[in-house]
Design a binder for these strands. Structure first.
Lengths: 195, 195
DNA sequence: TTCGAAATCTAACGAACGTTCGACCGACTC
DNA sequence: GAGTCGGTCGAACGTTCGTTAGATTTCGAA
């Protein structure tokens, strides 16, 4: 039994889309990757765009929910931001294929599935707002010396979302080490955590 | 006479590639954008991939050269890094179409024009090395308190290269203001400029 | 005014694309 | 053993793709 064929298709398509881009991958190539004929894919997804939709929305929602569910524990903002960023880096590496698709093929959904596009934008905005809120409140409480929480939030997200562009496990060591360095860079330096 | 038709094609193709991606744009669509038939494009470029090649290599080389030519003037490293980052942000905004193509369609060149791909990688690496060198030497001279110049360099480049993903002039104000905020964030905070 | 090259055109090629359709096959129920 | 149904198949559809070939136009130089 293992995993269902539908999930097998989703994973293979995510991998191919991430490597070559949505338009560079044909339905027959996806089908080949799971050992099936092209027409069989239409038993699980009504169209190629719906396949992209499933990959992007599912993976983005999974990320946001896994990240926002346990924010409460720590009392101080510095620890909360640090944990959030550490988990972000690790999660993005473990799910790098799906997340790459969610980041790169947005305009394709915007064209052919506007409601899926706005849903993704809303999800992403929710996460961004949460990070910006933590930074702003942490600064108001005197934990951070950050000057512009909004721009700083965007800068941070740009940093962590591009790690997958250069990170190679064999060359750069465990992803947890990178996550540690980035977390410190963010909390102690960019946010100016008041010792 | 104005600009030559060849450059007109390059600019139109860069815009379309940036908006929709290499594979989503057909030769006929590029031709339409300049008011010409599809087959006429082959008078200037032998293939679609060569068109991409020209856009990516030309724009990347233009950026690197414009950035590396006047690094000498200032004596202290902090000012040099600050100017380099400020110019980087402004340049990336002014040439955002071409630079987006250079960043996003790398694997397409890798597939069909390996030598162009390695050329781009070398150019980019040159720039990255120069930034890392400034940071390392600045730290050795006691100007910075930065701990890991290599990772910090990658984090910085990830930050500045993703500004175009969210920046909208009407909503976010002059690009020079953003460039100022980012430059300060980089030099004073991430590199820990010793006041 | 004539000539030749540069630039653009029309028309078509074979291939690949996303998608549809109807048949088939195996496993399950009655 | 007959019937049902989810899953897969082969084959084809209309379209678009990148590209080519050859005719035609444009236009400055001789």
């Amino acid at each position: 039994m293992s995993i269902s064929r539908r999930e097998e298709v989703l994973h293979a398509a995510a991998e191919l889309f991430a490597e070559q881009g949505f338009h560079a991958v044909g339905m027959r190539a996806i089908a080949d990757a799971v050992g099936v004929r092209g027409s069989s894919l239409y038993h699980y997804f009504p169209s190629k765009v719906d396949l992209l939709h499933a990959i992007a929305v599912d993976s983005t929602r999974a990320f946001i929910e896994s990240q926002l569910e346990d924010l409460n524990p720590s009392p101080d903002y510095a620890s909360r931001v640090r944990k959030m960023m550490f988990d972000h880096v690790v999660y993005f590496h473990e799910h790098r294929m799906e997340e790459a698709v969610g980041l790169r093929e947005l305009q394709e959904l915007r064209k052919h599935k506007p409601e899926a596009y706005t849903e993704l934008q809303t999800l992403r905005r929710t996460y961004q707002n949460e990070l910006e809120r933590l930074i702003t409140e942490g600064r108001d409480k005197g934990e951070f010396s950050c000057e512009d929480p909004h721009i700083t939030t965007l800068a941070i997200l740009g940093m962590v979302n591009t790690i997958n562009d250069w990170y190679r496990p064999h060359r750069d060591g465990p992803i947890e080490d990178i996550a540690d360095i980035y977390s410190s860079l963010i909390v102690e330096r960019m946010l100016g955590k008041t010792a």
